[in-house]
Design a protein around this nucleic acid. Structure first.
Lengths: 226, 226
DNA sequence: GAAACATTTCAATATTAAATGAAGTGTGGT
DNA sequence: ACCACACTTCATTTAATATTGAAATGTTTC
């Protein structure tokens, strides 16, 4: 078992492969060429590293014509990568203190399938303050008022709760070191915000920007300035 | 931020350092010499790797005379390492299927500060079946009946609940791929079982064995055969 | 105060694995 | 049928980094 751990750690530890995993963290699929650009290396090199990751069972590849799309083979992989990202502030707290400026990726990004970063923590705080969700000892609960609120957003919470996956759970934000919402409700909320153009994805990045429309709506509906 | 992730991954990825982290996972402190034996390398080499881990903020060192004890610098590090261990079954599922025999470390071990492995899942199931704890959507809750049960074990649940740390939470078991109990209650339970000699630590290992006394008591008190 | 032990430091060496570039395979467009 | 493109494979080069062993530092024991 120890040996498996050593092997897995070695797979993740190589800089180019670490960059691949980092890039895949927002849950999208990427082609080898896109990943080569992200990791700043050659096509042949990225191909070799991708082969190792697939062989180790961390990634899966899907063929679509002459493109091959790579993504995590399961949520567990994404969670492990996210857990690894969580310890960064510990590993480099000196640097973080020195540099007070906040980067776009710290401000707002996707975390596998939900929103993360300073904006996501702000939104979570607003949901709590408006009593749309409540914080229990170790998890979040949806209030009747919250159920209505998400219904207005055209999100069917009953349907989401019947799914096997976690409905609403706290997820530790590595950049803010505070909790934001995750689970199927958070994922559905992200989708709706993208659909209504409240937020937009930045191409080839995990960064998300809030549009003017989004700022207006989030203020009207949650009394929050993002 | 990506660069920090790359660095952190590289720190963890080296085999000797991965072994150090793995060994430290049960929350105990180890000396450089003990870790050298566990990682099967020289004293000078382990010293170099330990220096890198401390420098990266993953480990802390405490001097006690001529011994220097190394341990995780925080719980977050242990959780990240545990999350990494969670993906092992994915990375090597073929091997796991082939080998049906269960190793001692899969049977019963410590996971940072609480019990893990097949035994821990069995105990968690029994606690649920006896309605001493209940499974909510995303967490576990302690019932009044459970409160009494732990009081008989000389565990003051009120006091534990007042602590800032998580009281009772599910923790995914990487070997069983099911949940066992974690949090301050699980940690206190582990301590009591060790104190009353229901279970014993195996030297220089995360493995735990259940004593005859422990088997008797777990059957009497939880109607469970471990 | 000398000896035994735990750990660290340093310079030299060994080893491993990543990067490169050219050639090969397969798919899609025109 | 052709060419362009996405990706892979392979043999070779390159570079990084772990390991080793000897010497130094510091601490406890007798």
């Amino acid at each position: 078992m120890k040996d498996h751990f050593k092997k897995t750690a070695a797979i993740i530890g190589e800089p180019v492969r670490a960059t691949i995993l980092w890039t895949l963290l927002d849950g999208k699929s990427f082609t080898a060429t896109e990943l080569a650009i992200a990791a700043e290396t050659s096509a042949s090199n990225i191909s070799m590293h991708l082969a190792k990751l697939v062989n180790a069972g961390l990634l899966k590849a899907e063929n679509h014509g002459r493109h091959r799309y790579y993504s995590f083979s399961g949520k567990e992989i994404a969670y492990a990568v996210e857990a690894l990202a969580t310890i960064i502030p510990f590993a480099s707290k000196k640097n973080l203190q020195a540099d007070k400026t906040i980067s776009p990726v710290q401000q707002c990004r996707t975390c596998y399938d939900h929103l993360a970063g300073k904006t996501s923590v702000t939104i979570t705080d607003a949901l709590l303050k408006q009593k749309l969700i409540i914080a229990n000892d170790t998890d979040f609960g949806l209030t009747p008022k919250g159920k209505k609120w998400f219904a207005v957003m055209d999100i069917d919470t009953n349907e989401l709760q019947q799914q096997r996956r976690s409905f609403l759970r706290p997820c530790l934000d590595w950049s803010e070191r505070r909790y934001h919402i995750a689970g199927s409700l958070a994922a559905a909320f992200l989708d709706k915000m993208l659909l209504h153009d409240w937020i937009r994805r930045i191409k080839n990045s995990r960064v998300i920007v809030v549009t003017a429309k989004g700022q207006k709506n989030l203020y009207e509906k949650l009394k929050v300035v993002v």
